[in-house]
Design a protein around this nucleic acid. Structure first.
Lengths: 248, 248
DNA sequence: CAGTGGTCTAGACCACAAA
DNA sequence: TTGTGGTCTAGACCACTGG
């Protein structure tokens, strides 16, 4: 049996997590079976219950186990067809790839009427709508087209200049009193329209990743809606699910 | 100032989290500013430091704050253009949509040689490769095509039958000694090939979500590689980032 | 009822950063 | 040196599941 080394640089709760992970991945603890109780684990590895719990919560976060009050903690069925993708703001994403992000404003318009899909979402055009479209680039190569519709607030002019370098949520926080608190997004595959294909310098109908996004205020009313079209050949999402790293 | 109600059904650490979240979202605590120290928060809200820390770790998980040892805990810059997508196994995903998942095996082949992209990933064809292709369906409508290459292990015949209803990782755990411990995936947009388009009953070149996936063993060698093509119009990923729910 | 996980407390020691 | 977050302990009470 592995023991906890209290003089190691890796803390005990983490050591125990790698030990239990190993026992699970090796098949010693099989899916559906209960783990020893928290008290038993504490006795077995000479740790306080608090520490055991911190370790278990780490494994639960990673989907290896799940606890049920009053019953016990059980090994989850392994699910390796799972994947986790996270999208950052465009400039962050590009910077992580080691490239230089850039924005090119295509046009800005003031609209009295909302596009149909915005109405469906429950957006109201109290003072009109500001629409803009810009091209997102990495190292001067076009990667995505962004279409955005945002609630217009009188008396807070937005400088066209800002669209050249700022992310949407920055602009909205600076120029309105509205607090976006909720963000919803849908990712799918589509064919590029003529307009977007031209901007992306790809053929009409080329495959693109479509990201529809809506920002809501605290009353759950949409205050901004965006649609991104990413070039299929220049933008992809990555997921990597792997065991805990651990010297021990 | 909000206080903690120790008789509420929502535990104190969660109450404090919603209080601090409100102070952050409302702009009272601005991005980059430090929160009160954990000891101060404990005094202010009459909670132990452990409870305060549990609350802070919740907010940190959600990206609202980040702690720096020796310096303090700081409000993060809001990033609402962020999105989190998670893909489950196909049958789970379909079940969540309230539909009936189904598999249709298209063909199974034994191959001596690996496809080029599998070699690039470092896969070795010790005893040959088992290749299969199947159609994934929801309520009898085709949604995705799956191509899979897996290391073949002598003496463990796999019944064709299994491909009709089992997920890949199940098959591999049952029929090999190999333990998949790591899963890597790449999501992008592509045009459907003639072969895939026919199976999906869409036009040649229609947009599809492409998911490339590799499973690795504990020595970081690929043991299985899969490619999924999802119909762009029938499959999409959803992200929803919202404040903590809380009666109080 | 006894056993389980969920939460909280009060106190301790450590590593780290800044003055 | 002081104050910060990171970790650990020992003990307590609760709510829940099952016999």
């Amino acid at each position: 049996m592995d023991r906890i080394n209290k003089n190691s640089f890796t803390p005990p709760f983490y050591q125990l997590a790698t030990i239990l992970e190993k026992r699970i991945l090796s098949g010693e603890l099989k899916a559906g079976e209960p783990l020893p109780s928290e008290n038993d684990l504490g006795r077995e590895y000479e740790l306080s219950r608090t520490t055991v719990r911190k370790c278990l919560s780490l494994l639960a976060e990673r989907g290896l186990i799940s606890a049920q009050q009053g019953r016990g903690t059980f090994v989850s069925r392994p699910s390796l067809d799972r994947a986790e993708f996270s999208m950052n703001e465009f400039n962050v994403h590009v910077a992580q790839m080691g490239k230089e992000p850039g924005y090119r404003l295509i046009h800005v318009r003031f609209r009295k009427e909302l596009p149909e899909f915005a109405i469906k979402l429950g957006m109201v055009a109290s003072q009109g709508i500001l629409y803009y479209c810009r091209l997102l680039m990495a190292d001067d190569e076009p990667v995505a087209v962004e279409h955005k519709y945002m609630a217009y607030i009188k008396g807070r002019p937005i400088l066209e200049n800002e669209f050249q370098y700022k992310a949407f949520s920055e602009i909205i926080t600076i120029h309105t009193d509205i607090l976006p608190v909720r963000s919803q997004a849908i990712l799918s595959a589509e064919s590029a329209s003529e307009f977007d294909a031209n901007l992306l310098t790809v053929a009409l109908g080329s495959p693109v990743l479509k990201l529809q996004q809506a920002l809501y205020d605290s009353d759950n009313r949409p205050i901004g809606i965006g649609v991104f079209y990413y070039r299929g050949d220049r933008y992809s999402l990555v997921s990597d699910i792997q065991p805990l790293k651990g010297e021990r």
